[in-house]
Design a binder for these strands. Structure first.
Length: 878
RNA sequence: GCGAGAGUGGCGGAACUGGCAGACGCGCGAGACUUAGGAUCUCGUGGGAAACCGUGGGGGUUCAAGUCCCCCCUCUCGCACCA
């Protein structure tokens, strides 16, 4: 064969073959070990981007490799197809979200197929299909029954640009995670999932996730934010019958003797009770209104000034009996703990700042080791939590260390009936109501007579109406659709109103991996038998941006679904690989902003100019590919020019999966060149191999020439290296490097073979070369599957290479016969000697001393010490 | 501020438990084949004339340090009043 490598024909041919033969279809088979390989499903935005290519190339190597290792692999794909962009398309271009979404899915599916990804497409799901979101509604009803879904009026994060509510997880530094608009607070009736019921289990479960990156575990741990402390009642100086005391939460009960005032959150209803009938009432109210109007960005700003106002009321410190003032303070959070705190300025920096500002006394109750702290000369809070500090001014507890005091005071609080030990979490319940159209309708009905009534299960799904006005203004489009809103009450059949909010789209992605196990199940969302076989996901691959949001919600849903008896899995994802971003250099012009590569003139050496204005263009930083920075590369163009195998190979070779991948056009060409090299090598030699195969069944039968043995060693070392690199955290970049070395070695071998072609091949040569060629194709198959299939056929083997077993290496052939031992003198490399691998220490040392360069270095100097590391190195210390 | 990770040739990156720093690729240089080469093949390629010097900087441990310990600098990411 000497036909050139035509990627377009080759790739199309095998994609058709795989599909036609159903090579990647997965069925439950109890006799085989399963492997569930999953990549995060995409939002159908229109076209795939390089981030998808990388994500799915990584996943496909894992799936194909595991298949060749004999696993029954489930490798599904689907569409996270509810979401705002579809609605925006409707508003901006008048295309219905449903049409827009389905067109996008159609196109992107064809793009994924062109990448040659080994999915079982019969299991495809799209979350915007009634057959899928019906089960979102079903889960919602089940959770409502169990009290895990509830409705409450509360102050919520509101994105004025998306015109919808956001969960806490979806607010980043006071900005909307999706559009970066400043999030404001709004009072609304909202549906919540009681994720806090699972806080402890979600936290404990993290310790079992040994296959997750440490930083994701840390992020989740921090997000859940468990703290142990006590709740203590501080009696009011003028108690009211229904309000005798104010309850606080603290983790620093050891400092309770230093509490010189109290602070209450502005939103707390306590405020109104405390100021009743006092002269301070009006100004306090004014303060509360002012603070609660501030938007999230201002309120959560790190160096926001501490502000407060005295309520006029006093409490009594139950430990010191001191009368202490009660303040309202802007930094106290209503949603955390009890919404009120005891303030210990000497040992809490926030309280210290506050006390200094308003002239509140500071009382020292922990002294440092030197005993140098004094109340009047403190320039910051002494926040020692370890054993270095000792309690002072704390009655019977004085002299204790902080940890001792924490335990003893907590016990004392309980003994005296002043309060109790408690646990607090930072995690809040998941607000899931969204005032949008393109999402799952929440299956609830409001009846004037019966109140809130769930839609009966038999009436599911509550389908999204198609005929809806998209104006982009006002409340949810659903609320405008009379036929949708008007509903009969399921209980009394009277006229009632349907809930018009839809669910957060994170609900969709919280259980799709379970749906893949039995995508056609129509009596329940998940078939327990199927999920029993496939769950949990053995390897999950996706971007780090979901470290908290999606991965926390999915863990929560899995536990709820387990408690419903539909799966046995406690955790959805056993191993998690968070792949890095795809980045590229950027260019900027002072007047025209970010520049496309096509708007650049000049070169690296002579400098860049803007093609629009001829002005100087600056080479910017390497940034994540994004349209706004104009540094994107379209995968489709890449596939057209070089083919899917090249696109895959480059994105796997240029960096290890978890690190960022910097785009390089010449790197892509390098990958393409490599595939061409492989193609030519096997093409040119296949003919020779076929010719000689008849006479060369002598593998291991007769003695082989030394260079043939070396070839076999190279083959087996490569098998080992590629296998080890994949097994060791999917180090595909070094695995591919080993394949390149292998190919370089084979070329060299072939060249030498041609060079001294005297007529008769060396003994065992054809067999050794056949073995090498076969191994090469098999090892290449997960990375460049199309080329591998084609070459497998060229080698005279029947398809599909994807179904072949992974090659085995012979340990005896992995070890070299001869070793090159570096020889050092005083730790510096001076020479090398080549010795048989089984040489004794004496022999190696003798060889080393004989070496001309070494004997020169050793001459006239007494050798003080000789370091000999077997098979590794010799070091003479003189 | 707290937490995590990273800093290695002209560039992307190798180096697993301390043992030949720079695998592999890109780029660059030379040669071969060619009407031609931006195709392909072969060879070379950290710096330096050399001794030597080289893994962000400075100390240390060790026969031996990119790797271990201490101090410092820079960058990236996450969290950021959670009592």
């Amino acid at each position: 064969m000497s036909r050139s490598y035509e990627h377009t024909t080759v790739e199309a041919r095998w994609q058709v073959y795989w599909e036609r033969e159903g090579i990647f279809r997965a069925t439950e088979d109890a006799s085989r070990p399963k492997y569930y390989c999953l990549e995060m499903f995409p939002y159908p935005s229109g076209r795939i981007h390089m981030g998808h290519v990388r994500n799915y190339a990584i996943g496909d190597v894992v799936a194909r490799y595991k298949r060749m290792r004999g696993f029954n692999v489930l490798h599904p794909m689907g569409w996270d197809s509810f979401g705002l962009p579809a609605e925006n398309a409707a508003i901006e271009r008048g295309v219905h979200p449903d049409v827009w979404t389905h067109e996008n899915i159609l196109y992107m599916r064809s793009q994924l197929c062109r990448l040659g990804l080994s999915y079982d497409w019969t299991r495809e799901v799209a979350t915007c299909e009634p057959g899928y979101y019906k089960w979102n509604q079903w889960f919602f009803l089940k959770m409502y029954e169990k009290g895990l879904a509830y409705r409450k009026r509360s102050s919520v994060n509101w994105c004025p640009s998306c015109e919808t509510v956001l969960a806490n997880e979806q607010v980043e530094e006071g900005l909307c995670w999706r559009c970066d608009a400043v999030v404001i607070q709004k009072e609304l009736e909202q549906w919540f999932f009681k994720i806090t019921d699972y806080a402890e289990e979600l936290l404990r479960g993290l310790t079992t996730l040994t296959g997750w990156p440490e930083r994701v575990l840390v992020m989740q741990r921090n997000w859940i934010g468990k703290s142990l402390g006590v709740e203590v009642d501080f009696p009011l100086a003028e108690p009211k019958p229904d309000l005798p005391a104010i309850r606080i939460f603290t983790t620093r009960q050891d400092t309770i003797f230093g509490a010189t005032f109290m602070s209450v959150a502005p939103e707390s209803p306590l405020v109104e009770r405390l100021i009743e009938g006092r002269p301070q009432a009006a100004s306090v109210r004014e303060f509360v209104v002012r603070v609660s109007r501030q938007d999230k960005a201002v309120r959560t700003d790190a160096d926001r000034e501490k502000e407060g106002i005295f309520t006029g009321a006093y409490a009594v410190n139950p430990f010191t009996q001191a009368r202490i003032p009660i303040w309202v303070a802007n930094f106290v959070l209503y949603e955390y703990g009890t919404g009120a705190i005891m303030a210990v300025p000497a040992h809490d920096q926030r309280d210290f700042d506050f006390a200094k500002q308003y002239g509140i006394p500071i009382k020292l109750v922990i002294q440092n080791q030197a005993g140098s702290l004094t109340e009047d000369r403190l320039d910051g809070a002494y926040e020692e939590q370890d054993t270095a500090g000792r309690l002072v001014n704390s009655d019977r507890f004085s002299g204790l260390s902080v940890p001792e005091a924490k335990t003893k005071i907590a016990a004392f609080v309980e003994e005296q009936g002043l309060g109790r030990r408690t646990v607090n979490y930072r995690l809040r319940d998941w607000g899931l109501s969204r005032q949008r159209y393109w999402g799952t309708p929440i299956p609830m009905i409001y009846c004037r007579a019966c109140g809130v009534v769930p839609v009966p299960e038999r009436d599911l799904p509550v389908e999204l109406p198609k005929d809806v006005p998209f104006t982009g203004k006002g409340s949810s489009p659903l609320a405008q659709v009379k036929e949708f809103v008007q509903a009969a009450c399921p209980k009394c059949h009277g006229q009632a109103r349907r809930e018009t909010d839809t669910m957060d789209t994170f609900v969709d992605s919280s259980w799709y991996f379970l749906r893949y196990c039995s995508p056609q199940a129509d009596r329940q969302p998940v078939d327990p038998a199927a999920s029993g076989y496939w769950m949990a996901v053995d390897q999950y691959i996706g971007g780090i941006e979901h470290a908290v949001l999606h991965l926390l919600y999915a863990r929560f849903f899995t536990k709820v679904i387990r408690d419903l008896g539909l799966t046995k899995a406690d955790e959805p994802f056993l191993n998690l690989l968070t792949q890095g971003m795809v980045t590229k250099e950027t260019y900027r012009c002072a007047t025209h902003g970010w520049l496309l590569p096509s708007d650049l003139l000049g070169s690296e050496g002579e400098g860049w100019r803007c093609a629009i204005c001829q002005g100087v263009a600056q080479k910017g930083r390497v940034e994540k590919m994004s349209k706004s920075k104009k540094n994107v590369v379209d995968p489709e163009r890449l596939i057209d020019t070089f083919g899917a195998d090249t696109a895959r190979l480059f994105s796997l070779f240029a960096a290890p999966p978890e690190k960022d991948l910097e785009w390089s056009d010449s790197g892509v060409e390098g990958a393409f060149r490599f595939l061409n090299r492989v193609w030519r090598l096997l093409g040119d030699l296949a003919g020779t191999l076929h010719a000689e195969r008849g006479t060369s069944n002598e593998r291991e039968a007769e003695p082989v020439a030394p260079q043939v043995l070396e070839l076999r060693r190279l083959t087996h070392r490569t098998i080992k290296k590629v296998t080890d690199d994949i097994e060791r955290d999917f180090q595909f970049n070094t695995a591919i490097a080993a394949l390149m070395e292998f190919v370089n070695g084979l070329y060299k071998f072939a060249a030498e073979r041609h060079a001294d072609r005297s007529g008769t091949p060396a003994p065992g040569e054809a067999a050794a070369f056949g073995e090498a060629a076969e191994a090469l194709v098999l090892l290449l198959a997960p990375f460049a599957p199309h080329v591998a299939e084609e070459l497998w056929e060229v080698l005279g083997r029947a398809p599909s290479v994807a179904q072949q077993p992974w090659p085995q290496y012979d340990p005896a052939l992995v070890a070299s016969e001869r070793l090159t031992i570096p020889i050092q003198v005083n730790g510096k490399l001076r020479s090398k000697v080549e010795v048989p691998a089984d040489s004794t220490e004496e022999h190696v040392l003798a060889m080393a001393k004989q070496d001309a360069k070494i004997s020169e270095w050793l001459q006239g100097k007494p050798t003080r010490k000789v370091i000999y590391i077997e098979k590794k190195l010799v070091n003479f210390v003189v």
